[in-house]
Write a protein that binds this DNA or RNA. Structure first.
Lengths: 199, 199, 199, 199
DNA sequence: GATGAATGAGCCTTCATTCAT
DNA sequence: AATGAATGAAGGCTCATTCAT
């Protein structure tokens, strides 16, 4: 059972590591950076996690655990269009509220998914296949316009995660750090998917 | 004036570096890796480029130079919808034909654009602003449905680059390395933007 | 006065340390290994012994104390040949019953005796010199064949300790872990020294 | 093909490493020590050998290669007693001329032979078994006194290597660093084996 | 007596870069 | 134009020891 201090420090480390890993990638990050950000000495940090890799793994594990929740919530029994738009909205909220997690994930994928390949073709694919069947049924039933479910999901992921992963570019184009792009993004994405899918 | 050998080696280095940097990121790549991939010794490589950073910069400079071409080609005088869909198609082709360049760019942006921030708020923003005015005019003229030009561009970038940057995930979901996602992707994206923009 | 627990823990530490030091050497052993083997936490172990070095010293002190007993027992008044063969037998029994102690000692000597040099040229040499005089007297009296006492002792130590120190090699050559080499060893050594010394 | 400098530095490293490893054991030795002893910087040393382990392995490989030569030379066709005494003499010469190699080997064996166990039950045992058959034949033919060949070899190894491995103790007992124990040792060992084996 | 927490020093190794040829 | 040799500066990790409770 973890003591108070353990909980506090473990949390501080993961928080710091998320910051560091998500902006610098795994190899670009140093244990020292993380330790400093967590307010610990390097050996003290390694007292809680056996290695740099272990911290990264812990972070990814925690992330992947929650990563699919928005998709899981897509309900076959619901109204098709609003179910899908709801999924888009939830994904966009995740980008807004957990941009570092999104970048951590993006870093992994772009670099060839060395650590999470099994997850992609395992859990992820299984769930996507399951929900794809739902989409196909809705299409077959004429409840939404015909669409390739896989590419539908790719669209949703691409469009929502973009606001987290490419956030620097988004702000550069919008012309200011202070503009919150999410309200407009939400309206825009809702429009896109509504137009695409309305039967 | 560059000799034949100089040209050949410089090209080999940039080709090798693109491979290495795009999959490992800047810090994750070593000069040794690049030298080996280029078939040169490490000191010889550094005879052509003064530093690791310089190779990376050269690569980015070359990339950014061409990066905006598809957007530049968007012609105010053309037919609005097919101009935009044409832009989407060109960007998607770039993802298909130059996925490493796309990942190189993505790596930079995700990591906070330390080296290309000026480009983003300079050249890029200028061009985007210019083309945004075109979009707005088309909207004002009733030639396309109302849309926020910035978020329109974000959509195009997100959707097209996704197939290059997240290619590992795309293939994992599709279930095979051998499937070419681009034909379906093109149809899907064309549909999306047509539905979105048709007045 | 040491409590029951103190005695128990001190003993457990020394027992564990003997195990660890004798197979890994001083530098090759870690306090953690010893603590784990003793069933104690690291700080608790250091409550009983102030340092790693102190444990090692305690072990060596205890060992050296008993190390010379077999030689001390060599009795001038006894029958020369059987006195010497008796000494050989006792040393061989020590190898059989206390192989770890033998390896601890061997490790020290091989590495230049950094910690026990004084003992070697002190206690050990004094006793060896004393017993050498006995041997020389027996030779002079024609009770055993002429032999250099120093090299006689070297022979005895080398031959008997070999079965403890090189035990891995002995078993590899004999072809099995399960063979007990000591009965044959004893016969062999008795033969060697009898043949050597019989007048 | 190795250049002049390579040969020189590789040799210097192995020489230095032999010194350091044979007195401190593997774990007790640091790359820094070896580098300093070889007159190189630490990274420069690692330019020649990829790791500390590799240096150690190179040393052991070279050693084991030559380690069995004296035994291989034991000739079935020769005069039995002088063949065996000749073997003893050659082993003793190796102790005198290559004491560090002997201690390197001893360190390995005492610590459980983690790196050379295969050698012991492979090459070594094979050769020992072969030569044991020779010994047994000589015994059967009445050319030497009955003796267990395995324990005969153990005796030879123990007695000869002792002068290298326990050399500190030998000198402490003899009372001076300046005494050369080998002449007396040779006479003593010759006597031992002659008495033991003369039919 | 005992333990969770912490750390300074050190160790092996990597790497971008420089030097000499 | 090319390469073998060399190095300073880090980086990940270990470890004996100390601190606080």
């Amino acid at each position: 059972m973890a003591t108070r201090i353990q909980q506090k420090n473990t949390a501080a480390i993961l928080e710091a590591a998320l910051d560091v890993f998500s902006t610098n990638g795994f190899r670009g990050s140093t244990v020292d950076q993380i330790a400093r950000a967590a307010g610990l000495s390097k050996p003290n940090l390694l007292y809680y996690f056996p290695s740099k890799e272990a911290i990264h793994t812990a972070l990814l594990d925690g992330l992947l655990e929650a990563w699919l929740d928005p998709l899981r919530a897509l309900d076959e029994a619901g109204e098709p269009l609003s179910e899908i738009v709801g999924y888009v909205r939830r994904k966009l909220e995740m980008s807004r509220d957990f941009p570092r997690e999104s970048r951590l994930f993006a870093n992994e994928i772009i670099q060839g998914a060395p650590r999470i390949a099994p997850y992609l073709s395992g859990e992820l694919k299984t769930l996507v296949d399951e929900k794809s069947r739902v989409i196909r049924r809705w299409v077959a039933d004429g409840k939404i316009a015909p669409v390739d479910p896989y590419h539908l999901f790719f669209s949703i992921w691409a469009l929502t995660q973009h606001y987290a992963d490419f956030n620097v570019q988004v702000h550069a184009v919008l012309g200011s750090e202070d503009i919150d792009p999410y309200p407009d993004a939400e309206a825009h994405l809702e429009l896109m998917f509504t137009r695409l899918l309305r039967p």
